[in-house]
Write a protein that binds this DNA or RNA. Structure first.
Lengths: 113, 113
DNA sequence: TTCATATTTCTAAAATACTAGAAATACCAA
DNA sequence: TTGGTATTTCTAGTATTTTAGAAATATGAA
């Protein structure tokens, strides 16, 4: 078992491990690839600006989102490479390295409840 | 976007979001489906028993692992249904509901670094 | 230049999580 | 029943996280 990297993946999971941050990521996935500006995220989720800013910083620190500046706005968007990395890790752990989860149960899943 | 369930998935991610717990899960995936007894996990990871017990309880609370008792031993094993649920959620978010990550990049990934 | 908007940073309080030694409990073997 | 092993629970200290009001900064518009 490749053990190096575990700490980094744990940190990425931790970044997704709070409801506000997971909501942010889901929202940004919906808005991909343009992303969203902070005030629109705030309007959507109703999180105070300072709190939201901290959550966005944490997601950025783990590489899950990235920023592009345009005029006075910051556009946050999900980082596809990081999500692919994390999803690939979890998939490999569950479906490849171990056979705990059947691949087809993931890829052919009906619309989620 | 289905928004109910976000809190639960966030909690599951949080459970994987500390290095010791992610190590535990990886170890138990290796040992699937038998699982491992606590003292063997402890021997493998070098975590004090009380600390390890708390981590295991957290994983159990989120449904990621389950217990089977045999004589004086507790066998912990990963809960396939929960992992399938979580992996399916992440896959659906990234590959189905959004098209941020290409499915083939996950399912056909070469051995991970 | 002045004003308004966007966002972060400062500050700090409250809550939660992590860690682990020591004690308690459970169970089996002899 | 005695002793040993397995595991949890008790207790508690420390660290981290979450939250958010207020102030600061940045930028563009008028």
């Amino acid at each position: 078992m490749k053990t190096e990297g575990t700490a980094r993946y744990a940190d990425m999971f931790a970044a997704l491990g709070s409801e506000p941050r997971l909501q942010i990521v889901r929202l940004l996935l919906s808005a991909h690839p343009d992303g969203m500006i902070v005030s629109d995220i705030q309007a959507e989720l109703g999180i105070p600006n300072s709190t939201l800013s901290h959550h966005l910083e944490k997601l950025r620190m783990e590489g899950l989102v990235s920023i592009k500046k345009d005029k006075q706005w910051l556009w946050y968007s999900t980082n596809a490479a990081a999500l692919q990395d994390l999803l690939g890790f979890l998939y490999a752990e569950c479906c490849t390295r171990s056979k705990v989860v059947k691949p087809v149960s993931i890829t052919s899943a009906k619309a989620r409840r």
